[in-house]
């Protein structure tokens, strides 16, 4: 449809040659067909079922099916209303919001910081880059397990460090309550007036940050190698300080990779499941439960009650939010087809 590649070089051979091929229609199908069959049956079809099923009441013991209208229990948009009015949703939405604000910010700034440092190093760039990329290859399950060894109240490295350096403290400043202990149960809260944010979310975000920042480092490194050295030298000659070079030369040149890192980390934050599931399962109580965990629990933990309908409604809301947030990114991906 939009493949400039294809068009460009198909125009050249005479149109007679093109019409001579009867396989013109079937041929692309032979190439693209196998993928589309799998994609249709195991992505599109379930996605359609999720969207349609979100307007019905059902549970996984008696799943909703498009082909058995006799058993339909149509409820209109009440699954959506139930979801949007349940305290559990708003609790998870708040925790997800914390992820959405803190995680992309931390990843983008952290990755920029690390990438620029590596870029400035005269030698050893590859070794440093490898170290920061290593956690990217580690599963988030393993990352979660590994971070429990850091946070463990008895022998965890962080708890140990705090104790041995004598820097354990507890503060209670207005809305902020924080103590250097119980990292995975209750390290404190921030009171926003309308809601209390449990700081345990930050503990989990740190684990995610550790696991994901390598992606930002590698993406920004790719961008940095494209920055003309003369530009940086010229700025230096003009007496620009390091921070000024970063602010006025590098950041503008890195706009595209920075947008990618920010967007992909927003996607990561909204999709977050594994780290939370492995470390706290959303607990204590629901202090660290995020939307992805709520969907899963509603659909699969309480199998006997017909909650799959509400779970699908929530899944649709999440997906819609992601498509909206990531739309510029999606458009960038689509543009690629033309390039």
């Amino acid at each position: 449809m939009r493949t400039v590649n294809g068009r460009k070089w198909r125009r050249r051979p005479s149109s007679a040659a093109a019409t001579l091929r009867p396989s013109r229609l079937l041929l692309p199908l032979a190439f693209v067909g196998p993928l589309l069959v799998v994609f249709g049956a195991f992505y599109l079809w379930p996605a359609v079922n999720t969207i349609l099923g979100s307007f019905f009441r059902w549970g996984l013991l008696r799943p909703w099916s498009l082909f058995s209208p006799a058993e339909w229990d149509f409820v209109g948009i009440s699954n959506y209303i139930d979801t949007l009015t349940s305290p559990r949703f708003w609790n998870s939405a708040l925790n997800t919001a914390v992820w959405l604000v803190v995680f992309p910010l931390a990843v983008t700034v952290g990755a920029l910081f690390i990438a620029v440092m590596i870029w400035q190093a005269p030698t050893g760039q590859r070794a440093f880059r490898t170290i920061f990329m290593l956690p990217m290859t580690i599963s988030l399950v393993a990352a979660g397990v590994i971070w429990t060894f850091i946070y463990d109240p008895d022998f965890g490295v962080l708890s140990d460090l705090v104790r041995n350096l004598g820097i354990d403290f507890a503060i209670d400043w207005g809305p902020l309550e924080f103590k250097t202990a119980e990292w995975l149960s209750n390290p404190g809260t921030v009171d926003l007036g309308f809601a209390q944010i449990p700081l345990i979310n930050i503990s989990l975000i740190v684990a995610g940050f550790w696991a994901f920042t390598g992606f930002g480092v590698i993406t920004l490194t790719a961008g940095l190698t494209a920055v003309p050295e003369e530009l940086v030298d010229a700025a230096r000659v003009d007496g620009a300080r390091n921070s000024q070079v970063i602010r006025h030369v590098l950041v503008p040149a890195l706009r595209r990779p920075l947008t990618i890192v920010a967007t992909v980390s927003v996607i990561f934050a909204l999709r977050t499941f594994d780290v939370v599931w492995v470390i706290t399962q959303g607990g204590p109580v629901q202090d660290s439960e995020v939307l992805a965990v709520t969907v899963w629990k509603q659909a699969f933990v309480f199998l006997d009650s017909p909650q799959a309908g509400t779970a699908t409604a929530l899944a649709v809301i999440m997906s819609a939010a992601l498509v909206v947030v990531a739309f510029p990114y999606l458009k960038g991906l689509l543009r690629r087809e033309d390039a």
Partner: peptide, 28 residues
């Protein structure tokens, strides 16, 4: 390298997999 019908739509739908959470398909 080829041109076929619904190519744009198919490409768009494929790209959504990079964005939506797997929760969108996992329940059914």
């Amino acid at each position: 390298h080829l041109k076929f019908r619904f190519q744009g739509v198919a490409f768009f739908l494929l790209m959504t997999t990079m964005i939506v959470p797997i929760q969108l398909i996992i329940i059914p």
